[in-house]
Amino acid sequence: MSGSRHLPVDEERWNLLRSACVASLPGRCVQCGICAYNCPTGIDVRGYARRGLPVADAACLKCGACVARCPRGVLRFAVVAEAA
């Protein structure tokens, strides 16, 4: 991706997204399943949240549908240490 064709803010966003993945705040998820229900690629986001794991799934588009829809604000994009 050529940075020059994008606004600086887009580039920042892209870099951040590349190194980030969806992660859940431990102990806060109530397993309602809204995240998984809305995942366009059918990832079991709820299962990751239950195990306290970041959604390290090649199918994840990082579209943010789950993050935006979590009714309890449990999901975030987080920069994981290895990828940062």
Partner: peptide, 18 residues
């Protein structure tokens, strides 16, 4: 998911998603 019942009630998710 007992807390998920609220979202089933609101029609946000179908029952099987619980």
């Amino acid at each position: 998911s007992r807390p998920g019942l609220a979202y089933f009630l609101a029609g946000t998710i179908p029952e099987k998603q619980l």
